[in-house]
Design a protein around this nucleic acid. Structure first.
Lengths: 261, 261
DNA sequence: TTTTGTGAATGGCTTCACAGCG
DNA sequence: CGCTGTGAAGCCATTCACAAAA
């Protein structure tokens, strides 16, 4: 952490913790669902349950945004939706390009949640000339040659990389050179970017490996623990309760660690 | 965190920090690349650079696994690959089912990294009867009715949910009831699971929203900061260097927070 | 001399518990 | 009285800096 935070006095204290930022989308989703059911207010307890966090954490998170609740009552759903949307920058709309229209890229292009809150797929880009012009999710694929022009013409600042690992760094460099400052990387590679560019990565095999680690641990403890288990099926039916790790219920979200490298 | 950690004295100290576990796959990938280039040893500095973390963190991480390095020299690549693989449980192979073979499910089925290290797609499952029998990535799709039988017959303990949000909880319940104890969730829903079941989620729109937050902040600071910027293009070409947030280079990975809910 | 392994210091996030407000 | 907002405490992770080993 360097200096920063000198400019813009802002509405309130600047510097929302990263962990909090990572949970805001979760709250927003839960609130949107409540809003659609026309629920007018919600308590920290209820909303926390819907978002899968505990209520103290939620209240602390909201306290960074300001005092938007009413004691003895709870939070106004509509108002909170607006405040969080604004905080996340979703009141404006962000043109996004997806580079690499293979299976995954196509899936992303078709993903509904993309178009919904504040994001708009400005272009699909692929290196395969045979793909050029072919529509995916109603949008014609353009060739990589056009990349720089597309970025500039559309004022794109967020790019999604869904290319094979080998092409990712090169695509990343071109995106950044053309003016992209936020990248969501689905390729299994560590991207190197200049200062001021944010990269987030989504990596299937890493997630699976983390699950495998815990799965293995369960198997080990199960074996060492109760010998109650009859010789039954070969299948590891871990039905027995376990008093291991975290108590917390619901997904805790990620502590993100965005790195303006 | 409850009691736990009574059974199995294990090779060394148990209890590897979650943050460390989340980085092991990253190290493993970097090491595998070195291994393929027949590099015999690597220093913490070099490996850290390849994995995108700093070297002190890497050394501390490895210290939880044991003392696998040689002072003055570094780490033996092959040996480390083996140790980390073993720690992550990748020396055995994990049958995995993917439920929901839409765009995303198909992309996952085709994803190479899946089959590589320790994971095997045991079955593809979809609720659409029209899909049944259709091969995706060389594997015939089976109907949801078969779910329980598939899990049991293949001893599956890891399930991937790629269904629409509305179906996710129901699918999750059936997976868990059939014996699955680890779930990777791509649906934008908070899953409720019994104790002892791990859930990890991958959520595109959350990642984008986090990027939007930082993107918005850049725009704000840019405006307030230098007025140097000529009236030029409408495009927000944030070329200027910034002295904001983290110093660290390379992707920091996620601090995962697996929640045995 | 080089580079690991690790106590100690630091910083951030979560949880607790309760004061304060409606 | 109910529920929010928040200081204080505790926990976990990162970073520092150096002693110890090869």
């Amino acid at each position: 952490m360097a200096t920063g935070r000198t400019h813009r006095p802002a509405t309130r204290s600047r510097g929302i913790p990263e962990a909090t930022v990572a949970r805001l989308p979760l709250y927003l989703r839960a609130l949107t669902a409540l809003s659609e059911r026309s629920v007018p207010t919600v308590s920290s307890e209820e909303l926390a349950a819907a978002a899968g966090v505990n209520s103290a954490k939620l209240r602390k998170d909201f306290s960074y945004l300001g005092s938007y609740g009413t004691r003895g009552v709870g939070y106004d759903v509509e108002y909170l939706v607006y405040q969080i949307s604004r905080e996340l920058g979703l009141t404006q709309d962000w043109p996004v390009v997806i580079v690499g229209i293979g299976n995954l890229g196509a899936a992303l292009a078709n993903y509904g949640g993309f178009a919904s809150r504040g994001f708009r797929v400005a272009a699909l880009i692929d290196a395969d000339p045979a793909m050029a012009g072919k529509p995916v999710a109603g949008i014609p694929v353009q060739h990589t040659d056009e990349l720089e022009a597309i970025i500039r013409d559309n004022g794109v600042s967020i790019g999604v990389i869904a290319t094979p690992a080998g092409a990712a760094q090169q695509v990343c460099d071109r995106l950044v050179a053309a003016g992209v400052t936020s990248i969501l990387n689905f390729a299994p590679t560590v991207l190197t970017v200049p200062d001021g560019v944010d990269v987030r990565k989504v990596d299937l095999s890493i997630e699976l490996q983390i699950l495998a680690f815990h799965e293995q641990r369960k198997a080990g403890e199960e074996a060492a623990a109760d010998v109650t288990q009859a010789a039954g099926t070969t299948n590891s039916a871990v039905a027995a309760k376990r008093e291991d790790s975290a108590t917390d219920q619901g997904p805790d979200g990620d502590v993100p660690a965005v790195m303006p490298a």
